[in-house]
Design a protein around this nucleic acid. Structure first.
Lengths: 152, 152
DNA sequence: CCGTATCCATTCCGATACTG
DNA sequence: CAGTATCGGAATGGATACGG
């Protein structure tokens, strides 16, 4: 083992994000939450995942602050899992994943689910990395630097 | 098993994308590729991953068309792993992951790596889901529909 | 230097049964 | 309905040794 990262942890935010939501189910749970799924059984039905795994994932996602547990919105005695702000801010990740999957993992004729803007009925724009002035940036237009924000 | 999805596969592009790049290493490999890493040993050093699993990942990523193998750019006899267009188009996913990780998985003072625009030296813009007219959309502003593109 | 082959530990996952 | 407990199998990951 190179122990390259275990004590001081990763400096790369990509790695840290992957640690939290990089398993096979978390983002699919979040995706369903974006469709207003809130109840255990609804997640279970939508995902077709074993209940114990779902329970473990939801618990983990609550622990890291992606979901919070709320009393049911209707009168029923059960809890609901609702996204926190941290969870809602996963939206760009899920949408960029979706758009990539749509472009590259579907044959042209295959039926798929696409994301539409409620207001216009149009599909949402393709996501892109942009410069401060709004131009689209590719990988070659960027570089990473190390920063320690001591500058308050 | 609910066999909810195994024969006709997932209609959700998020799920399809996750199947391909949703493991613990793939996106980190791609991230390094965005930093112009191309050689086996460079990936290995950067990631601190065992050689066998790196080899397996790279092979899988070549098979799904994210990387392609090229002769070395310098004279050396070895191959290089370079991103295809499909691979380069993972850029928005990696960047949105990065930005989320940066916001929510770092304490304010922790040193991190951030992505800068070469041209301006400024950090890149925060990614957002946008309507066709350019407004930022949240989860509640969107809905998914099923589409079968028979309309040529 | 670039991998492959082998072996082992751990983690993940699914099915089932069970509790409140 | 909403989970928990348990168990076995599969996948994943790491260390090491080896071959081109």
């Amino acid at each position: 083992m190179l122990d390259h990262d275990s004590s001081h942890r990763h400096e790369c935010p990509v790695a840290r994000a992957s640690e939290v939501i990089g398993d096979r189910w978390s983002l699919l749970i979040v995706r369903d939450a974006f469709d207003d799924i809130r109840r255990f059984s609804e997640f279970q039905k939508s995902l077709g995942v074993a209940k114990n795994i779902l329970a473990a994932r939801l618990k983990a996602l609550v622990e890291v602050g992606v979901f919070e547990i709320c009393p049911a919105s209707d009168g029923s005695a059960y809890k609901e899992y609702v996204l926190t702000e941290k969870g809602r801010e996963l939206f760009p990740i899920v949408v960029s994943l979706r758009q990539w999957g749509e472009r590259f993992q579907f044959a042209p004729h295959e039926t798929r689910s696409v994301l539409m803007d409620n207001a216009t009925g149009q599909p949402v724009m393709r996501m892109a990395v942009q410069s401060a002035s709004g131009e689209t940036l590719g990988p070659a237009d960027c570089h990473r630097i190390r920063v320690t924000p001591d500058d308050v």
